[in-house]
């Protein structure tokens, strides 16, 4: 047995590569252990989860660029309509359909030109952006509030309560959104508010389902049971463990829901069910632009570019947030 072992060893190590006087026995090795004087050098500064997430978001160049773009967009949408020398419905019938950077005889500059009624497109585009963003953000926030409360209740209680609440959601999903908008426009004055209400009636189901699923899976996670075993109060359990784990998913969902809300608004306005004229929105403007696309393409391209870039930025920002809020993807 022992001989066979030695033979195998000899076959494996045909010649000795170490000098004869170099004896590497067990005593040649010592446990060094951590260097007590220098160990503070590798201590990472103590930072909270949210500050760490912020730091990671700031490292993501694409997400930062998108944030900057969105801030600029919001500033333009807020300020331009206030300082513009024109109003949204002010018509200049002497110079309709003018190209970009057209200067009228009275000396006024139309940066994006005018539409077929001679209204200033620069003013209308930014006011439209403001309307669209306002609708999108309020719709998403309302949906999230309703959805999170509904979904969290369903997920937290579980059992037959959850069952009934989820069947109710399935009924709502079965009703086409367009029908609700049309029905609502019959009883309400069509406008921004009715649009928001119509979308809020059906739009919350997505975030409700998302929240319910998250709460259901979090509730049975061992770290939640561990916190419970430590004696956490339900309040602490919810605020310190469930909400932080839920919030990152919801923030990402919020950022990704805004572009879809913008697009829905644009679509509804485009088919004439949305924001009533003469009030501009990105969808309205694009719809008017299509009528004259053959001759004055900028009238369609400008709102289309704003819609695309806004949606793209929100999507990219959502991606960046998802990466930043997950400590496992830490770089």
């Amino acid at each position: 047995m022992s001989n066979a072992k030695n033979a195998a060893k000899a076959a494996f190590e045909p010649e000795k590569t170490l000098p004869a006087d170099c004896d590497l026995g067990a005593e040649a090795f010592a446990h060094v252990g951590p260097d007590a004087e220098r160990r503070d050098e590798i201590v990472r500064p103590s930072i909270s989860y949210w500050r760490d997430a912020m730091r990671r978001l700031m490292q993501n160049k694409v997400a930062v660029a998108c944030m900057v773009f969105l801030v600029v967009l919001v500033l333009f949408a807020l300020i331009v309509p206030l300082v513009s020398p024109y109003t949204m419905s002010e018509q200049h019938l002497t110079h309709p359909n003018k190209p970009m950077f057209f200067r009228a005889e009275d000396g006024h500059l139309h940066v994006f030109g005018t539409d077929d009624l001679g209204r200033d497109l620069f003013m209308r585009l930014w006011l439209g952006t403001r309307t669209s963003l306002y609708i999108a953000v309020s719709v998403v926030v309302i949906n999230l509030l309703i959805g999170v409360i509904y979904g969290a209740l369903a997920g937290y209680f579980g059992g037959w309560i959850d069952n009934i609440m989820m069947r109710f959601i399935e009924i709502i999903i079965g009703i086409p959104y367009l029908i609700i908008v049309i029905l609502l426009s019959m009883i309400m004055k069509s406008g921004v508010t009715s649009l928001i209400i119509a979308y809020a009636i059906v739009g919350w189901v997505g975030s409700a389902r998302l929240t319910r699923g998250q709460v259901l899976s979090l509730r049975t996670q061992e770290f939640i049971i561990a916190a419970h075993a430590l004696g956490s109060s339900p309040w602490r359990l919810i605020t310190r463990h469930i909400v932080p784990n839920l919030l990152s998913v919801l923030i990402v969902n919020l950022t990704l829901a805004i572009p879809s809300a913008i697009f829905t608004e644009a679509f509804l306005s485009y088919i004439g069910m949305g924001v009533p004229l003469p009030h501009p929105s990105l969808g309205n403007l694009a719809q008017e632009g299509t009528l004259r696309f053959m001759f004055y393409p900028q009238q369609l391209l400008l709102p289309a570019v704003v819609i695309s870039l806004t949606m793209l930025s929100f999507n990219m920002l959502g991606d960046g947030l998802r990466d930043a809020l997950d400590p496992r993807l830490r770089t």
């Binding site: 989860y49 996670q221 061992e222 770290f223 049971i225 561990a226 916190a227 075993a229 430590l230 463990h241 932080p244 784990n245 990152s248 400590p327 496992r328």
Partner: peptide
């Protein structure tokens, strides 16, 4: 107190 089986699920990732 309790020590859990799955060391991956029993610590809050955040």
């Amino acid at each position: 107190q309790i020590i859990f089986q799955d060391p991956y699920a029993s610590l809050d990732p955040r």
